[in-house]
């Protein structure tokens, strides 16, 4: 078994899932992967099983947050030291995973975010979205003092301690900006590295135009909640005393 895990949450991704997994197998050989199929209504499950992919099937549809958290729970149970989340829609380039892994290892970071906006290469998202992203960037700066250029990036790699934390506590939907604040507030180290992302090829983004309002409202409040005041958890609660992981 390898030490790093790619978590691929998938909901109705029959058009992208094979490409995503093959990309990881080919370009990220130091990673195991697990697909968390969030009760897809399309052929995702059958496709995965036919291809012999490593897939965990959620018995009920419970949202992206719960699916990703299930991936972190998997990483914790099976004793992975690093976990990275990659969207099942083929937007993320697996070639960057190896680079991220070596950086998180050598610089001993707790969390690494792949940012589209450091070198401004590849798919840069639309203008309206950029505005939203800037807004969250600013919120994070205010609450934590740290600069995160791409707070909505789904490409996030974390070490063992943050795996333990996410397995315990992870937002139900649209978790990215909020968890960046929480992780920093808990005193973990966080760094961004430049990555290139592709535009989505098939299927629709989970953030359709109709949900944009909900997204902005929810995530803004969540950022304020995470940024201000009392924090229930302490960093020490998730310290890993048994590196190598608990055995099942």
């Amino acid at each position: 078994m390898k030490k790093a895990l790619v978590i691929i949450p998938a909901y109705n991704e029959e058009g992208n899932i094979i490409k995503t997994v093959e990309d990881i197998k080919k370009n990220a050989p130091s990673f195991d992967y697990v697909i968390i199929n969030d009760c897809s209504k399309d052929d995702t499950m059958r496709l995965c099983e036919k291809s012999g992919y490593n897939v965990v099937n959620m018995p009920l549809n419970s949202g992206i947050g719960a699916a990703v958290q299930c991936g972190y729970l998997y990483a914790k149970r099976y004793g992975y030291e690093y976990a990275v989340q990659v969207d099942g829609d083929g937007q993320h380039d697996a070639a960057f995973l190896e680079e991220m892994l070596s950086i998180i290892k050598t610089e001993k970071m707790n969390m690494l975010i792949g940012s589209r906006f450091i070198e401004k290469e590849g798919f840069q998202s639309s203008g309206a979205r950029r505005m939203g992203i800037n807004w969250f960037s600013r919120l994070i700066k205010i609450f934590t003092g740290e600069t995160v250029t791409d707070p909505t990036s789904g490409m996030r790699m974390v070490g063992r301690d943050v795996i333990n934390f996410f397995a315990e506590e992870y937002p139900k939907d649209y978790p990215e900006p909020e968890t960046a604040i929480t992780v920093l507030k808990l005193g973990y180290t966080l760094k961004e590295i430049p990555v290139r992302m592709k535009a989505r090829e098939e299927g629709t983004s989970s953030i359709s135009f109709k949900r944009a309002i909900y997204y902005m409202f929810k995530v803004t409040i969540a950022c304020f909640m995470a940024g201000i005041g009392y924090e229930k958890y302490k960093k020490e609660d998730f310290m890993d005393r048994s590196y190598g992981g608990e055995k099942l």
């Binding site: 968390i36 965990v56 099937n57 018995p59 009920l60 958290q69």
Partner: peptide, 14 residues
């Protein structure tokens, strides 16, 4: 419920 769903998924997998 969320935790139950996750545990069920992982149990099934196991």
């Amino acid at each position: 419920i969320k935790r139950l769903i996750q545990e069920t998924a992982l149990l099934n997998y196991r």
